[in-house]
C-alpha cells in the first residue's frame, strides 16, 4: 500500500505541529511522511483484536503531594531566560483585542 500525502494534509499537519514550512520543506515532508507511513502500515498485518493499548510498561499512578513551595523563589533566574521581559513578567504579543 502506498500512501500519498496531499497538500491539504501537509497544511493541516503544519498547523497541528505549529511549523511553517517552505515549499521545498513541504515537498520533502510529503515524501518523507508517505514513505514512513508505508513502513508503519506493516503493523496492520498483525491482528490486535482484544489487545489493550499499552502506554506504559508499568502501571502509572498519580503522585500526589501537599501544595507547598519547597524549592524557594526562582522567579529572577526563571525570568533571566525570558526572550523579552518587563519587570516581573514575560512579554508576549497581544493575545486578545
Amino acid at each position: 500500500m502506498a500512501n500519498v500525502i496531499s497538500d491539504e494534509t501537509i497544511e493541516y499537519v503544519g498547523i497541528l505541529a505549529k511549523l511553517e514550512l517552505s515549499d521545498a520543506e513541504k515537498e520533502a515532508a510529503k515524501k518523507d511522511m508517505a514513505s514512513m507511513l508505508d513502513h508503519f502500515d506493516k503493523l496492520s498485518e498483525l491482528d490486535t483484536t482484544g489487545i489493550e493499548p499499552m502506554s506504559h510498561v508499568f502501571p502509572v499512578e498519580n503522585v500526589m503531594r501537599e501544595d507547598e513551595v519547597t524549592n524557594g523563589d526562582g522567579s529572577e533566574m526563571t525570568l533571566a531566560n525570558a526572550p523579552e521581559r518587563k519587570d516581573t513578567a514575560f512579554v508576549v504579543p497581544k493575545t486578545v483585542d
Binding site: T9, V13, A17, L21, A29, M36
Partner: peptide
C-alpha cells in the same frame, strides 16, 4: 519553531502530529 528546530526534529514533529 520553524527557525529554531533542525530538519530531523521537524520531520519527527510532523510525523508525530499526523
Amino acid at each position: 519553531r520553524s527557525e529554531g528546530f533542525g530538519p530531523e526534529v521537524k520531520r519527527r514533529i510532523m510525523l508525530g502530529s499526523f
